[in-house]
Design a binder for these strands. Structure first.
Length: 986
DNA sequence: CCTATATCGTA
DNA sequence: GTACGATATAGGA
């Protein structure tokens, strides 16, 4: 808040005909908080719902009431100052059972007081008095001066103030409360309200009243006897014995209650009423505050009404997400072990004290201070000892777990042992299937003194499935799947890798060893040291039990400590919801998909392999013939020398390492110039690629038992929230070319089933329209208009009807470019045009869609300020190099950040759909099984008889995936179809 | 044997 | 121009 903008307070005596508005700030905060949906500031998740409700109310009061002819001459917002008032001296239990305000409301109190200042409205509070007493006193003085009073509130305790010239206005219900409404509520006119309240009491405020008497009876009694004192004096006359005795017995309580509910109209005011005169709104000051809160709609309204250009106003620097982040960054910096000193941010929680972030930091350093010791590690050899550990874990309610196996592939792996940790340095290892060190020929049998794997599983299962015991693991999906193969449905659980990913995506890797070094300052025993590496590597079942025990117990120990450090950061940094809704529930969903796998037709692939090999062989011969010498066509180095050296073709450029570049676009350019060799190289490359990466490789991934292909999805591999798929990567199965689609057709459904593919159409462009708020684009999507044609016609003035395909193609490339954070260089490459021309396209595009330029600039600024961008669902993508001094690194990070909001939001949406679809299928009694995810597409295997209802259900779940967390103004559109293979279904 | 590079498959 | 992973080649160990 800039002091220079606040004008001197002008005194304006209240006189006849004036209209004094008194806003009950404190109760309004609670009502706004409870009545309105939760709202958080986009860029940092600060809860601001009550602030928003308050600002909108105040704005309407000042503007719309004004337009309706009700013109405040004096206005103040009045707050409670502290919990203790003179009423506590009268009655120690007064308001004693008020609960603490909710966690996400607390930071909003200070913000609302700042909001009032930003509106240039006085905010009043006084030690020892409730807002109601101040309102009562101001009301009395205003009435005495002949002015009208509007009390903006709905609290029934204020109704006693209503009299001719004084009304209440409930802005949330949009109604006024006068004498008639009071009579309706209390059965008595305003001047008798306190008498009724004194008798009836109030459980909310802990006003005792008289037991057995409610509002109805009280009103009746006051109606009959006139007032409380008369009633108490003549209580003997009452006929009903119970009522009479209660009144006599509790007469004193009634009198105290009367004092409690009667508002003090003679508070010695610090701020005289004359000084509440309405002051003009200062557009810049208010906009600066609203911008810091990121209330775009209201900012726009205020800008329009005050004639201030909002673009020219800076967000209030002390209140922005950045300022708040600086406080957090200091905490995070200390968590990361840097020397930074935490700084206090005025107006926000004390970060060094008993706050979530303060506690998280304190927890982190406490954990880090505990040295590692292996002396408390135990190797479990008997049921009794295993039982003791299970009992301990169950008693504590949290246990870290790690499975040791024979393979990194959880579908192929055999369980070798399990480790548990219950506290730092308290961990155990349960060897189950260790074998001797030999070559396997003469040492086939299991080593002695190991628990039977079935016995151990049977003992562990109840604890692993116990709702009261939290299982913590690093990369739990692996262990979950391993245990699922042994019939265990592990739950509930936490995953330290995913917690780290939610907190620090883009800030380093999330594997255990680096996390341990970063957070615990400890380098764990490396896997390579235990198993050997290269040719000498042995499977884990060949590792001697003592050595394995040390390693495995330490891993569980490290995992537990990481959880202790990282879990508190989720709440402290406002990321719990992202973790709980977008990450953690994905574990069983993906593990189940991986376990199911998908069928491929090996005969098709093998035939294609032969076909591709033959054609590539023929091309290779032709290529070497034309080149005039044999060479390795697959070697870009040799190829470059042939094309640009030996044959002297033009347009050669160099790669980063100084070699000739021979990428597809360069070869295509050469082919267009009439050279025949480059096209043959391109054809050869396509065939070689398809053969080596797909037709030859895929059959090798068929599982010997399931006869299906089981990919592995990584949840924490990308910066944006997308999944990745590997071994094999089933997210890059060809589709673009004819030859490629033949490979896709080899992915088939089981007999009696079909494959269903459901994909979001143009989801990222739709999200661009939504997030950047571009009217033309939103309209186009709402109306189902061809978005690329629309872009083309906006840019080039060509009518959509009969548009040449080349024009649309260019517009399409531009649209994709926008999603990727466009550069003239990139667009020029894509369209094979000059950079100047590409630059002109971009310029024209921004002229037609200025909102997109604003969106991009805003994204860059936010990312530069905070170091990350946020998706619509709150996921953070960090770009620590966004402020690099190196212009190309900086530009790259800016483009990535622009893309991340869109790609990341799309990733969030499909994750939500994935988490919901299987329960929805189950509820509908359908037997479809989700098999694959390809970023904007889900593939299911569906019994033939259930195709139609499954298509409908999947489409509905996917299209509604954003709700209720986010409701988009742009429709999502899902295309779904069924077929015998993936090519036809897609 | 391991790693970097170039290329290319997908959204 | 974004986000990935797999492959082959090439070069240093």
């Amino acid at each position: 808040m800039s002091d220079t903008l606040a004008p001197a307070i002008v005194s304006r005596p209240v006189q006849k005909g004036d209209h004094v508005f008194l806003v009950d700030g404190s109760s309004y905060i609670f009502r706004a908080y409870h009545a309105l949906p939760p709202l958080t500031r986009k860029s940092d998740g600060l809860p601001v719902g009550a602030v928003a409700g308050f600002c909108n109310m105040l704005w309407r009061l000042l503007k719309e009431a004004n337009e309706a002819g009700v013109k405040p001459t004096h206005l103040a917002v009045i707050f409670d100052h502290s919990a203790t008032t003179f009423r506590n001296a009268l009655y120690d239990k007064y308001k004693a059972q008020r609960p603490e305000p909710p966690e996400d409301l607390r930071p909003q109190f200070a913000l609302i007081r700042q909001a009032v200042g930003a509106f240039n409205v006085p905010s009043i509070e006084m030690e020892g008095f409730e807002a109601d007493d101040l309102i009562a006193t101001y009301t009395k003085q205003a009435v005495a001066a002949g002015a009208d009073v509007t009390i903006v509130a709905s609290d029934k305790d204020l109704m006693q103030l209503i009299e001719p010239g004084v009304i209440m206005l409930d802005t949330m219900k949009g109604k006024t409360i006068g004498r008639d409404e009071v009579i309706e509520k209390f059965g008595v006119p305003p001047e008798k309200v306190v008498d009724v309240q004194a008798l009836a009491g109030d459980s909310v405020d802990n006003i005792p009243g008289v037991p057995g008497i409610g509002v109805k009876t009280a009103a009746q009694l006051i109606e009959t006897y006139g007032d409380l004192e008369t009633l108490l004096a003549r209580a003997e006359e009452i006929k009903q014995p119970k009522r009479r005795e209660a009144l006599i017995a509790h007469a004193e309580m009634a009198r105290i209650s009367m004092q409690l509910v009667t508002l003090d109209r003679d508070v010695p005011l610090d701020e005289p009423i004359d000084r509440l005169g309405v002051r003009p709104i200062i557009g810049e000051q208010l906009i600066s505050f609203l911008k810091a809160m990121e209330f775009t709609t209201l900012t726009g309204r205020v800008a329009a009404a005050t004639g201030v250009e909002s673009g020219g106003v800076e967000a209030d620097g002390a209140l922005t997400a950045r300022a708040r982040e600086a406080g957090r960054a200091a905490t995070a910096a200390s968590l990361f072990g840097s020397q930074a000193t935490p700084q206090q941010q005025p107006g926000f929680e004390d970060i060094g004290g008993l706050t979530p972030s303060g506690l998280a930091a304190a927890r982190a350093s406490a954990i880090k201070a505990i040295p590692f010791s292996h002396s408390g590690y135990e190797t479990i050899r008997t049921e009794e000892r295993l039982w003791a550990w299970i009992a301990r874990a169950t008693e504590l309610g949290v246990v870290a777990i790690d499975t040791e196996t024979t393979s990194l592939d959880p579908m192929q792996a055999e369980l070798v042992g399990i480790s548990l940790a219950v506290a730092p340095n308290e961990a155990c290892y349960i060897p189950l299937a260790h074998r001797g060190e030999g070559d396997g020929l003469f040492t086939e049998g299991l080593l002695p003194d190991q628990l039977d794997i079935r016995v151990a599983i049977a003992l562990l299962k109840p604890m692993l499935e116990d709702r009261a015991v939290l299982k913590v693991a690093q990369n739990l999906k692996y262990d979950w799947l391993m245990l699922a193969r042994h019939g265990i449905d592990t739950a509930p659980f936490d995953d330290t890798m995913l917690i780290s990913y939610v907190l620090d995506a883009g800030r380093g890797v999330h594997a255990m060893d680096p996390l341990s070094e970063r957070w615990l300052g400890h380098k764990p025993i490396s896997f390579d040291d235990v198993t050997g590496k290269g040719k000498a590597r042995v499977t884990f079942d060949r590792v001697p039990i003592e050595r394995a025990s040390e390693y495995a117990a330490e891993d569980a120990d490290v995992t537990l400590r990481l959880w202790q450090v990282l879990k508190p950061r989720l709440a402290a940094e406002g990321m719990s919801t992202v973790y709980e809704t977008l990450e953690r529930p994905m574990i069983p969903v993906l593990a189940s998909m991986e376990r199911r796998g998908i069928s491929i037709d090996r005969a098709i692939l093998s035939r294609l392999s032969g076909e591709f090999a033959q054609k590539a062989g023929a091309l290779e011969a032709e290529i070497q013939e034309i080149a005039g010498q044999p060479f390795n066509v697959g070697s870009p180095k040799q190829l470059g020398d042939i094309l640009f050296g030996v044959m002297g073709m033009p347009g050669g450029s160099k790669t980063a390492t100084g070699a000739w570049a021979t990428g597809a676009s360069i070869l295509e350019d050469l082919a267009e110039q009439g050279y025949e060799l480059p096209q043959k190289i391109l054809d050869w490359r396509q065939l070689s690629k398809l053969r080596s990466t797909y037709t030859d490789a895929l059959p090798g991934y068929v599982h010997p038992e399931t006869k299906r292909v089981h990919t592995s999805y990584a949840l924490a591999a990308t910066t944006t929230g997308r999944l990745s798929s590997s071994e094999p990567n089933l997210q890059n199965i060809p589709v673009r070319t004819e030859a490629g689609r033949k490979i896709r057709a080899a992915f088939i459904a089981d007999p009696g089933h079909k494959l269903v593919s459901a994909d979001y159409s143009q989801i990222e462009l739709r999200l661009l329209a939504e997030i950047a708020d571009i009217p033309q684009l939103k309209h186009a999507f709402a109306e189902g208009i061809d978005i690329h044609a629309l872009t083309a016609s906006e840019m080039f003035g060509v009518p959509v009807e009969g548009m040449p395909s080349e024009v649309r193609r260019r517009a399409k490339a531009i649209n994709f470019g926008i999603i990727y954070g466009i550069s003239a260089f990139g667009l020029a490459n894509q369209l094979s045009i000059a950079r100047e021309e590409a630059g002109a396209y971009i310029k024209r595009y921004f002229e037609r869609f200025p909102g997109i330029r604003d969106y991009m600039e805003e994204t860059k600024r936010i990312c530069r300020d905070l170091g990350y961008v946020t998706t619509l669902f709150g996921r953070r993508c960090h770009y620590p190099e966004i402020a690099s001094k190196n212009a190309s690194i900086r530009a790259f990070n800016e483009r990535a950040a622009i893309n991340a909001r869109l790609q990341g939001t799309a990733a969030d949406i499909i994750r939500r759909a994935m988490v919901r679809v299987e329960p929805a299928l189950e509820e509908a009694g359908l037997n479809a099984r989700m098999l694959l995810q390809v970023h904007d597409e889900l593939i299911f295997e569906v019994p033939e008889a259930e195709i139609e209802p499954t298509l409908a259900l999947v489409t509905r779940v996917m299209e509604n995936a954003p709700t209720p967390a986010v409701s988009l103004s742009v429709p999502l559109n899902v295309d779904a179809r069924a077929a015998d293979n993936w090519d036809e279904a897609h």
